[in-house]
């Protein structure tokens, strides 16, 4: 496994205008029971075959902190997807 997934979300206390716009549109689709929507982004990093798991985690964390996320207003998680999670449908 050479893939690392980084999920970036706005911190819970930060306003998400995009999410607000979606939640306000949902009643028009008949999905009025949705109370809140938060929108983030998922980034997939493919490391070269055989890279050490610990190295992948460390590098992905550094990449996320310095480039992918804005730590002032966003949180991120780094994970190595397990086998049950589907490969990209390319």
């Amino acid at each position: 496994m050479t893939r690392v997934v980084v999920d970036v979300m706005l911190k819970p206390e930060i306003l998400d205008p995009q999410g607000e716009a979606v939640v306000n549109a949902l009643p028009r689709l008949g999905a009025g029971q949705v109370a809140s929507v938060r929108i983030g982004k998922r980034i997939e990093l493919e490391f070269t075959e055989g890279t050490d798991e610990k190295v992948m985690r460390e590098q992905a964390t550094e990449i996320a902190d310095k480039l992918l996320a804005n730590p002032v207003i966003e949180d991120f998680t780094v994970r190595l997807p397990d086998a049950s999670e589907a490969e990209p449908t390319a």
């Binding site: 911190k11 930060i14 205008p17």
Partner: peptide, 11 residues
């Protein structure tokens, strides 16, 4: 890392 505000110009 204080909690900064995000605004929404459309509102």
């Amino acid at each position: 890392r204080p909690s900064v505000q995000v605004g929404d110009p459309f509102i």
